[in-house]
């Protein structure tokens, strides 16, 4: 439950595929306890969103 490394694997994979229920619960539990990983999760999401917006910005005009 304490592996930040595994937690980052799951937070990356949730961008690419739906996590299983077990994985979702594990990640949720870890993020509740670990502010470092919470921060990392937000930042990885931010990077993904930023790339999405960059694509949309290119498509919009």
């Amino acid at each position: 439950m304490m592996s930040c490394r595994h937690s980052t694997e799951l937070m990356s994979q949730k961008i690419d595929r739906p996590l299983t229920l077990k994985e979702r619960l594990w990640l949720k539990g870890h993020l509740l306890m670990c502010f470092r990983c919470r921060r990392c999760d937000q930042q990885l999401d931010f990077i993904h969103q930023a790339c999405q917006k960059r694509k949309e910005g290119g498509d919009a005009s």
């Binding site: 595994h6 921060r39 931010f46």
Partner: peptide, 25 residues
């Protein structure tokens, strides 16, 4: 090097807060 032997964040590699990331875009 991001993680220590116990698989927790290495002290020097702990993610830091980002200031107003939206503005960077």
């Amino acid at each position: 090097h991001f993680f220590a032997a116990n698989e927790m964040w290495e002290r020097a590699e702990i993610p830091q807060p980002w200031h107003e990331p939206e503005q960077a875009l």
